[in-house]
Design a protein around this nucleic acid. Sequence first.
RNA 1: GGCGGCAUACCCAAGUGGUAAGGGAGCGGUCUGCAAAACCGUUAUUCACCGGUUCGAAUCCGGUUGCCGCCUCCA
Length: 494
Amino acid sequence: MTLTVYNTLTKKKEAFQPLEPGKVRLYVCGVTVYDLCHVGHARSAIVFDVIYRYLKYRGYDVTYVRNFTDIDDKIIKRANEEGTDYRTIADRYIAAFYEDMDALDVLRPDLEPLATENISQMIEIIRRLEEKGIAYQAGSDVYFSVEKFPEYGKLSGRSLDDMMAGARVEVDPNKKNPLDFVLWKGSKPGEPAWDSPWGPGRPGWHIECSAMGSRFLGPTFDLHGGGKDLIFPHHENEIAQSEAAFGVPFVRYWIHNGFVNINNEKMSKSLGNFFTIRDILKSVHPETLRLFVISKHYRSPVDFSDEALAEAERALERLYATLEEVEKRVPDAPEEGSVHEKALMAQDKELFEKIQSLPDQFREAMDNDFNTAQAIGHLFEVQRALQRFLDSFGRKKLKGPAAALARMGAETVKGHAGVLGLLTRPPEAFFRELRRLKVREKGLSEAQVEELIEKRNQARKAKDFEEADRIRDQLTDMGVQLEDTPEGTRWKIR
RNA sequence: GGCGGCAUACCCAAGUGGUAAGGGAGCGGUCUGCAAAACCGUUAUUCACCGGUUCGAAUCCGGUUGCCGCCUCCA
């Protein structure tokens, strides 16, 4: 089985062949650190986190680089507004970014370079381009001449003529061609500046990824990712700079994730229709957000709404509930491998077969351009068969081969979900975190709820069901849902 | 105006030419003091519309309609 990846460059799914067998060099555009991240950033981070995890699961030795753009006009603007320097702003939002990513269980890439720590590499590329007559200085700025790179437009699928036709580009008297883009920006007095052959200034946005990509992964690397909105001009320009400077292909496979929409419209800063990650995490469990995001294929748009999140939450609860039940009812299963396959199969042929086939099905789904939605579907199939199997024993604890099979089912589900960054917590921890989140959101106190439940249970014991139901209705109105079990009453917030 | 994407049940959603995964919601049942949760059953002869290719199309081709994105900072 081979991994196939949709390549934006060729607009086709292609068999993935890394430059060096067994090794993958992955670069993803990080964020410009001038503000808090929103859910759109979260999607991108989660999508590439899953891709990173899957590539490793697939046995590749992955080097994953994700940069920080820590010098840029927006950062300078923000610093001016607050009467501070760019470094303070950048550092603050880098710290905030890490808090958000950690909360989302997004793994740290192997390398996270800062633009400002790679200025000399950028200058070197610009110098080469200038030497080749592809870059030109105009005033204190240096520009890339798009006409000198015949393949300009190959990623975004447009020709220079097309772009000129409907161009909404402001006329810049310095530019030879309106589509030329800045490589080096001369700084005005008081702005942050680095020395360069063209005078003090700062790098243009696009050059940093060319510099950091080539520095840490080589002049050609395997995968480069980012949001769809980066295809043009950012990634188009990266290709132009890198290939013009080094004379070799820049990236073999380009991967772009779709947007998060609100009411069918792109979530974005400029439209103002965004939620920050930390805001959402006040009422939504991070794993719920992750399941929501990867329930849909990474290239499609995904519509963000309370209802959609609630659905994802219920689905996740279902998975965790089964795992929890296995923990409770299968306290000690025979050691793995100690029970013969035939004995396991005799317990429940369908469950056994589903467990056996999950690894292949999961891999097949993920190999198909990271089809997480399909992979999750397979997870649920095993979960349902497993829950059915547990139910067939009533409330009894499972022993011997039955216990072994149940345990095997839970481990298989958990193991594969883990590749997606799901079901990574002990079930009790998940339910505890979820309830705490909801209790806080609703402004309730756990003690208050527990007290009412205790009262209700006393009424139940006294067979005063009228009173018990009255209290339950009261709790229902508060958003508390009860579940009476032999081990006592459990509750959650709905 | 140029380039690109999408349209599958009440909602979300997978579907890689061979006869519609999965999740949510609803309804009926089992369980329960009653509920809840869970389980069982049920909900698309059909994939926006019109043509075409094919033994066979949700899948391929052409057209129509609708929605979205990029072309300006943007994940």
